[in-house]
Nucleic acid binder design. Sequence first.
DNA 1: TTGCATACGGATAAATTTTTCCCCTATTGT
DNA 2: ACAATAGGGGAAAAATTTATCCGTATGCAA
Lengths: 134, 134
Amino acid sequence: MQFRTLGYFCVMYERKIPLNLNCGLDLIGEVLYGKWKIRLLWFINEGVLRPSELQRKIPDASRRVLNIQLKELEQHELVSKIIYPQMPPKVEYSLTDFGKTLIPIISALGNWGDENEDRLRKAILKQPLSDNDE
Amino acid sequence: MQFRTLGYFCVMYERKIPLNLNCGLDLIGEVLYGKWKIRLLWFINEGVLRPSELQRKIPDASRRVLNIQLKELEQHELVSKIIYPQMPPKVEYSLTDFGKTLIPIISALGNWGDENEDRLRKAILKQPLSDNDE
DNA sequence: TTGCATACGGATAAATTTTTCCCCTATTGT
DNA sequence: ACAATAGGGGAAAAATTTATCCGTATGCAA
């Protein structure tokens, strides 16, 4: 994310450390990094399409960041946004065909996490390495 | 990463925002987040085992962070570390059996990125969304 | 007319991660 | 004696990401 659009203006945050875009892993990292992006893609795939619904599904994320990350997903062509010209406003996101190709991968990530849930939970929550457990 | 071990002491950085460890995606995210971790796993899988070799393979990362992220990977049981008691010191990392189960997933990530390289590169580098390209 | 819902975004603060700079041990080679 | 290699880590700064607080607007209901 080099720049970030907020409305018609560009927030003047410009990267100081250049992006690495050398290999496929760099590229996918660039579009999937972001605390909530994978979850957003997942829920949109499941039919949770409207911003307010997504916010209710992901209550730990602030409204603001979800908007920003949705916009980045849109910019990266993984989701598309439809604005219905009506009042009260209605917006719906959906996966692009390109975005849909990510679903099997996200699914694999989630499955690996689920299959190893206990082990991961222990490893993540345990106290840091000390002399005893090395 | 709730805490971080540095030697015998614990750096007093304690998370203020609690971890989400609700689903598999949260869990895998917790062990794979970190700018260089996937690359570390990948290179170790390819036989680049020693810290100095890894540093040469990933010159954009500082020596320091690689050490820290390797230690976290070790704590999460994805890699194991062998210290050869000799001078000059020699250390080798290797994937644990658990860590090896991640390789197909990392491979899938990298392939997706490679397959869509041009499109991704354009999407990442293009100017932010303006009125014209929505 | 206050309250709630929908949606969006600016400005700024806080949190978190990564980098930078300096330090350490010990061995080998010049 | 000095530099280069191997392996580390502490402290603090810088970079980046996320959160908080405030505001805009419309329409509907009590």
